[in-house]
Design a protein around this nucleic acid. Structure first.
Lengths: 344, 344
DNA sequence: CGTTAGCACTCGACTCTAACGAGTGCTAAC
DNA sequence: GTTAGCACTCGTTAGAGTCGAGTGCTAACG
């Protein structure tokens, strides 16, 4: 579709613009050395590239900047050879090797490291509770009317929920139920818990219990909410403020607002979890208007072939794709490998 | 120290400036109606107030703005009669009445409501784990080498931690230990756990166990980290961006950076937890430079006379003190009352 | 003597204009 | 096909002028 020379020039422009955040002129491309043509020739090609939709011109007498289509082409034809950032990687690898568990603090800390070494915003989607299975279920009474339910998953994640026990139900009765549940529901995937609860335990429990209805509704309450919460962790949101394209408060406001909206963020990250390898969403490819000038790069790590979580880096559309993509690529593979070693 | 008229004028200036974010002139004060003097008279008083350090002049031909000292005086002499924002309060009260527990989601949601109704940034310091006592302690093995430790406090908070079990230690042995611990340590305040562990259980456990040293170091590891984590929850950080004084990215950057630094934030909030009633830190009274142009208003809620957590609202020094102070005042009392009712 | 009207003065904000220069598109020559 | 040359565009910057909100001071008023 593009000639070799066009490809070369487009590449040079994107590279330059990523560094400088300013429209790139023909002269500066010519002087770079890797495109051995005069400014005039380059200007001609640039005009063509603009007509083809790969470049844009902020105004008549300015240089060119890449369009979304230009970035997309750049990314799709990026040389996938990993750069070496051995220093940063060493930090990260050491960190994960030492404490590979899904405690909140650990994930939060990992997010911080990531945003620090990239200078972008990092978004981590934690291991999905939904698809892990039950390791242990327990109910502890706190006082007459409240109890705390604890669910431990096979991956060691602990979820808890405070529930109020109606006056008619006794704690000892609840405990009877829970003991029954524990033996019957261990190793059932969480997303099947509710249906299992109804189908298999319905009759049996009805025989044992006096306040079947009430207890059932309490349990229902405990399990129903647990389904959807894959949690996101965010770090370096303020790095957005250092980008020159966002020096205007108006423009960052919407982005930061969206970053605060965890449910939306979770959904967005989860939607990228399908495909393998490193995913890139450029500008309007993100289906939120606030991210129209941002790019999101993600990679998914998995255990036994099943996606567990996603690592993401958010930056301006003018972001260092090569660096971030290879970083996330390496990292997700590292994580996957470590997890499988750890769980074998 | 100040004459009645000076007080009146200072008050009017602060009020006006809080609304408009622009230097207040003598004419506009005169026209407000509540200060029945001509601009000239007011100008004279303003000059005096400036000399006394209550007002500042951005430049010679501009109106006056309150200095930190001016805000401080304003706040200290604020009429403490509660305003009524029955609508907002109804939302909040309903919310807390329905789900008064310390689950993360609940606190996070509460923070969101607070930032929404104030249009400032809300900072909540969750119930302090440190001073609650142990309700239940449990260890669950996940596989050969890892186990998850679960600590439930008397307030229903659940803390968990993944630990790796060295090859020499068997899970059954660990469970023996934990059973012993559970019966002996229930109701011990968390901050005493470590010493109790050493003093009372040392000898007894040594008799029961083969790998005393290793097990001890694992337990040590579990309890030591639990001490300090009182958690902060943040919402509406982006509200800072809507304040006209922060329309310049440079100025907000440091503030938002500090807000991302949870440990610092925790410390800051914890340091305000001592005193009773509503606390106000104006500008440089906050001992972080980034908050030099911000004010932090906090109130602490407690149970049985002991401070449990703190609610805070952060805004520009030019913030609606009256509104926020009374809101937090009411809220902290509400919470304290509800908590004591709930735990009796 | 406290208060106020009047007035000259200050100074940031805004507008307008001119000069500048980076960069283009086109044409003609190599 | 490539490049040198050149007229042209247009955003950016700097300087000059104007405006007006607001002040400080002085003198008059009750």
């Amino acid at each position: 579709m593009l000639t070799e020379r066009q490809r070369l020039i487009l590449n040079a422009i994107v590279d330059d613009y990523i560094r400088s955040a300013e429209p790139v002129g023909s002269r500066s491309i010519s002087k770079r050395g890797d495109v051995g043509f005069s400014p005039a020739t380059i200007r001609n090609e640039m005009a063509d590239l603009e007509e083809l939709g790969f470049l844009e011109q902020p105004h008549t007498s300015a240089g060119r900047i890449p369009s979304h289509k230009g970035y997309r082409y750049y990314v799709d034809h990026l040389d996938p050879t990993y750069q070496n950032f051995s220093a940063e990687l060493r930090t990260l690898r050491a960190f994960f090797a030492e404490k590979l568990n899904a405690t909140e603090q650990v994930i939060q800390h990992a997010a911080m490291i990531l945003s620090n070494i990239t200078n972008y915003t990092s978004i981590l989607l934690g291991p999905e509770v939904f698809h892990t299975s039950l390791r242990h279920f327990q109910l502890l009474s706190l006082n007459e009317t409240t109890a705390v339910a604890i669910i431990v998953t096979s991956t060691g994640q602990v979820e808890s929920k405070t529930v109020s026990v109606p006056p008619g139900v006794s704690v000892s009765e609840m405990e009877k139920v829970v003991n029954l549940l524990n033996s019957k529901l261990v190793n059932v995937p969480l997303y099947k818990l509710k249906t299992r609860l109804y189908r298999e335990l319905g009759q049996e429990m009805q025989r044992h219990l006096t306040n079947f209805e009430e207890i059932m509704s309490i349990l229902d309450n405990i399990f129903v909410e647990e389904e959807s919460d894959q949690r996101v962790y965010l770090s370096g949101a303020t790095n957005m403020l250092t980008q020159p394209e966002f020096k205007d408060v108006e423009k960052v406001k919407d982005i930061l607002d969206l970053l605060e909206e965890t449910p939306t963020l979770t959904k967005m990250m989860a939607s990228m979890q399908g495909a393998a390898g490193v995913q890139v969403r450029i500008g309007t490819e993100n289906d939120h208007e606030a991210f129209a000038n941002c790019s999101l790069i993600t990679a998914t790590y998995s255990l036994d072939g099943e996606a567990l979580g996603t690592i993401g880096i958010l930056g301006p559309t003018r972001m260092e794709y090569a660096k971030v993509m290879s970083l996330l690529g390496i990292l997700s593979k590292d994580l996957t490998a470590m997890l499988s070693k750890l769980n074998k």
